[in-house]
Nucleic acid binder design. Sequence first.
DNA 1: GGCCGGTGATACCCGCCGGGTATCGTGGCG
DNA 2: CGCCACGATACCCGGCGGGTATCACCGGCC
Lengths: 279, 279
Amino acid sequence: METRELRYFVAVAEELHFGRAAERLGIAQPPLSRAIQRLERRLGVTLLERTNRSVALTGAGRVLLREGRAALDAVSAADRRTRRAACAEPGLVLVTKAGASAELLPKLLDAYAAEPGAVPVEVLLCGPGEQERLLRDGRADVALLHRPFDSTSGLDTEDLRTEGQVVVLPAGHPLTTEPHLRVADVSALPGLPLPRWPEPDGTYLDGPGAEVRDHVQLLQLVALGRAAAVLPESVRTHLHEGLTAVPLLDAPTVTTVIAWPPHSRSRPLATLIRTATAL
Amino acid sequence: METRELRYFVAVAEELHFGRAAERLGIAQPPLSRAIQRLERRLGVTLLERTNRSVALTGAGRVLLREGRAALDAVSAADRRTRRAACAEPGLVLVTKAGASAELLPKLLDAYAAEPGAVPVEVLLCGPGEQERLLRDGRADVALLHRPFDSTSGLDTEDLRTEGQVVVLPAGHPLTTEPHLRVADVSALPGLPLPRWPEPDGTYLDGPGAEVRDHVQLLQLVALGRAAAVLPESVRTHLHEGLTAVPLLDAPTVTTVIAWPPHSRSRPLATLIRTATAL
DNA sequence: GGCCGGTGATACCCGCCGGGTATCGTGGCG
DNA sequence: CGCCACGATACCCGGCGGGTATCACCGGCC
């Protein structure tokens, strides 16, 4: 099975439409049809159920979509990491959620920079759920993730720290006088809905809260009195005025972990991991 | 980057010899040379240092060898799992070390078979270090591994049980009268060397012990008075006569885990995992 | 009911690329 | 010094990837 065939199949399986898939791939529709037919013939498996008006995945097609994406990520990773390895400049790419670990990250970068043999670290900020992808397809070497929000499935990890969560409210809100609160107290505050985070595919479920993409956006909305936020304790150290945090007694604890793809412990990466765990 | 190019590069990188690699790939040598040249040109990276008498990997080449193997495994997995998914008969393939978990495995299989919605489970036995490979390239769906001997890097796991280790000696050996021993006591017994297990590449390091491939072989050697063995406690339940086990106080404990590739939790697999953890 | 539009499949052509054979260039070694 | 081992080069062929034009099918609409 060639990667081109996989790319083609994934495009069709995602679009469920040969014409649009061909356009996305930058080729014409007939070669795409042929390629899929040949793929099915060689696998001896029907991947797509075509009626003249629609395309649907079979069970085997769903399996190939999932596995094919993973395989394509692995191929991309091989490509990118090889190019980077040749670039003479052997920096690391660290990815984390925008606005998260605002306290831990500078410490880690400073401590690592002081290590012997440290290499430049490029920091990539992205929305929730994108980090795993960046690690898997080779655009990043290491990530700071937050259990249980981020999945660490298929990654090697080391725990860095565990903390409780707080609710962040606009300063002056009545509840800010309480010494602590419970999740039930804040899950449906009148006028201060909890925000909605994007699903893995980038879309938002329907609901009352505002659509947010990162912590910075979210805290801005809270300051404007349009939302409440439940976040790890460490945001307290970076709350500007207009925001108040109140501990939540029964919210799940959050563990910050450093994560990296298996089988890719280069020397600089190992040093970074050691620095992080020793922090 | 196409999978054919990756296969070709991996073959050359492993053989470090274009002729042998071409033979292994079933093609002639000139097309192979051209393919590697084109791969290097397209990546813009030198992968191999060729002198007229030898071939050596560059740094980037080593990276591509590691990442390329992983990518090829992922592509193979996509192929195999897709074929299996279409086969109507949706069995699971479980892999474990030959001779290990001799006690746990039948229990698990019986308990799972009694579950509603259970599917046939094919059991694959293999040498140490091969299980991860089988999981990654799609030949197996789930494995029983033993930390710290097997690496669980890149796999999702659930712990099943933890046990100490014992030393297995021929019946009547003087030390079998002791209530317990320490690792130092048995690491260099006269006439009873500990065996040598194969390295990940299938070769054996030099040393005094016998070369063994699985637990069955090993216990046979012990019974013959040619070796001592350090194994998890659970072997005791399956020791035939002629063998005696003595607890080791300071050997590392062994954890049996059930492991599966990330992102592949089919319904039957989820049931099997649940059954195993509830055992 | 007949026409239209959208969709995937088919037909046909071209150029490149993968593969083969024959041969070259070069450096190590007897 | 000459042979040989080995990778590179030259040249040819067939198949495959890609394009354009067109067909076949069917739903919807007037």
